[in-house]
Design a protein around this nucleic acid. Sequence first.
DNA 1: ATGGTCGCGAGGCGA
Length: 267
Amino acid sequence: MLIATWNVNSLRARADRVDDWLRRTDVDVLAIQETKCKDENFPWELFERAGYEVAHFGLSQWNGVAIASRVGLDDVERTFAGQPSFGKGGKDPVQEARAIGATCDGVRIWSLYVPNGRALDDEHMPYKLAWLDELKDQATGWLAGDPQAQIALVGDWNIAPQDDDVWDIDYFRAEGLTHVSEPERAAFRAFEAAGYADVVRPRHPGPGVYTYWDYTQLRFPKKEGMRIDFVLASPALAARVTDASIDREERKGKGASDHAPVVVELG
DNA sequence: ATGGTCGCGAGGCGA
């Protein structure tokens, strides 16, 4: 079984790319982030034609997550229990469309779009950390209730856990940028401490292995990227992983997302 | 040429 995660940066703008990619790669499950649409604008027929069931959670032109599967799509959940809300300036806090879960052929998959944080001193940063902390608590409970559970926490984590996960850590430090701060990294490590493992890094160690390249500053041709998209697997699921890849080719050309798909093969 | 981005949705925000 092949499972994948991909921040598509608008599903409507990427419809042809996603269609081609599904047919080319033949994945069984695709977790999508940043659909950037409501249900009424979601390209349902794209997935139907390609032979996938799909569940979507989108509230506005922001965020939006989905799971497409051709091996079953059961027990769909939108938001995780206790998911923190956010409202800029403290007004109208809402649980944003950043998490959707479904069971596909016995694997509990969560498509996650972790809050960006925006800046170290921005109100979005404590939101990001609280969001991760609460998800970690929930994910810990899922394993405590069933140590043999097959769970995949996949998506855009908006964290670069190691210095080699960005093209120039000194630049990030000098500019005081997000994604590499100790609190963010600690939040990521908490998932590993809870028993979830990055199943891609061992097969594709850095430096220079990235999943995201900013559209600006010619970051992609200059190979200046970030590794911020991850597949974290519970112990029972990690034991099944036989291969993994980052589809850097998909970042090429006109009309590409700024993220590459990450694919994991299960035996 | 010393610059150089997208997407949404219709101005500016978010990434």
